[in-house]
Design a protein around this nucleic acid. Sequence first.
RNA 1: GCCGUGAUACCAAAGUGGUCAACUGGAGCUGACUGUAAAUCAGCUGGCUUAUGCCUACGGGGGUUCGAAUCCCUCUCACGGCA
Length: 349
Amino acid sequence: MTPLKTRLPIYLPDATRGVVKSLDTNDLLNCGVEGVVVNTLHLAETPGLDYLRKIGGVKKLMGFEGLVVSDSGGWQLFSLIHRSNSQGSITNDGVFFKNGTNRKNIFTPEDSISSQFDIGSDILICLDDFTPPNSNSLRERESVERTILWAQRCKAEFERQVDKRSLSDTSLPLLFSVIQGGFDRKLRAQCASELIAIGFDGYGYGGYAVTENGLDLELSKFVADLIPNDKYKFALGSGTLSDIANLAGYGWQIFDCTLPTRDARHGRLYIYNSALNFPAEYVYIERSKFSEDQSPIDDTCDCHTCKNFTKSYLHHLFKIKDFTAYRLATIHNLRCYTRLTEFLRKPSI
RNA sequence: GCCGUGAUACCAAAGUGGUCAACUGGAGCUGACUGUAAAUCAGCUGGCUUAUGCCUACGGGGGUUCGAAUCCCUCUCACGGCA
């Protein structure tokens, strides 16, 4: 297994379509962001896998040399299917879905893996069967069985692709699978042990871990403990700053979450120390009380935004809806996340 | 001075006899967002108080009517035209 060249824990913002919305790769590096998560399904749609293969993958597309994880695309399909009912269905063969031209497509575990090779990511994720939090036990059981079945097929396809592409041992990407099972610990344990038996480089915390009361911390710990310590532990989709601090304490090492970037675009900015103690106090930058505020968003922050601009200016940019507002806000929120992971990497005294 | 048009809640702007405490924007206030079809979405924004309750409200005053933001008279102000 090729070890990751980065220190852990690490937070990877979501660059679903090959961009962390409103930022370029220089911005990412300046925020201390060392990697991103891209989405297989979205990239397959545009710019397309043929093109990505031709130019040498998404890193070339983005001009980014850092760590790239590709998500399988399963979550999107299920999310779309659940959201807009009857736009698709899930079977053991794969996921059937309708695309923009109303043609019915199937997306299989094999499709997902070969697509991820075209994308050229460092970490590939097996297609898994995502369940929403209100799923019944029958559905959860089905999800676990299918996730295991698909993981086997993904691993087989992974090995096929390695041969086909004549990849050397040093250039092999990592393959992660995802532990499902909802809130049922027996199912989680069963899913984990069967996936571990198949053998992957890392394991993800699957499903929708967040409830009305936020992240289920005890379950997160339980699932982390199911994974051997010589394997990577990826808490998919998590979380808030305080979630990540907690999850890292349980052994989770890799995180991705849309929250900080989306919050930024929606004008909800973080104060580092406050945000660690969830529920956090936020700077809702569009509030009129900031219209003449000459201080930075967070005076403990060393990001480009805080070092150079006042809340007053940010407020103004948001009010006039200039794109720069979203960029500067995203830079700040991301820097909060990298500050946290940098802090968590320090050996505790 | 005469003629015309207009004056609606913080701003803009609907409404021209009852279903209007008043459409809709903006502004404002609270919030939401966790493997991104999200530069998005929700609630509130006259007062008392939280109720299928009362009070005060559509420039001021007066009138018609069972009932007026809506009709009439008058005053004030604004804009346009003619002197």
